[in-house]
């Protein structure tokens, strides 16, 4: 199962792109209640949004973004069948990518 959920909605002349990503977004400052050890920092660093394979937006973030990050963006235009791709990479070298077609 992909870590990325994408929802698009065409509005008047624009397309709203919303995404929810399953990710712990650990700051590295928290302690595990079970063993009192510090939980290693683990957060998404970069998220890119592509429209038909062309980058339209990049977000660089720290661990100040909430766990299971949510973002919404607004793209000019957008036609049914256009491809939106969202990709993330985190500080531990993980990455994921997901496509969605505008309905």
């Amino acid at each position: 199962m992909s870590s990325i959920k994408i929802r698009t909605k065409r509005q008047q002349g624009t397309t709203q792109i919303r995404t929810l990503i399953a990710h712990p977004m650990e700051t590295g400052l928290n302690t595990d209640n079970q063993n009192q050890k510090t939980i290693a920092a683990h957060f998404i660093q970069t998220l890119t949004v592509r429209h038909n394979d062309k980058i339209i937006l990049t977000t660089d973030m720290g661990s100040g973004i909430s766990r299971n990050p949510y973002f919404s963006f607004e793209m000019k235009g957008g036609e049914p069948g256009d491809k939106i791709t969202i990709q993330w990479s985190d500080n531990q070298g993980n990455r994921d990518t997901q496509d969605a077609l505008i309905s």
């Binding site: 339209i56 973004i65 990050p69 973002f71």
Partner: peptide
């Protein structure tokens, strides 16, 4: 966060912060 916008997107963003 830092958002880098192309001319194809409007300055209309949502996120959730700690």
């Amino acid at each position: 966060a830092r958002f880098t916008l192309s001319p194809q997107v409007n300055t209309q963003l949502s996120a959730r912060l700690k």
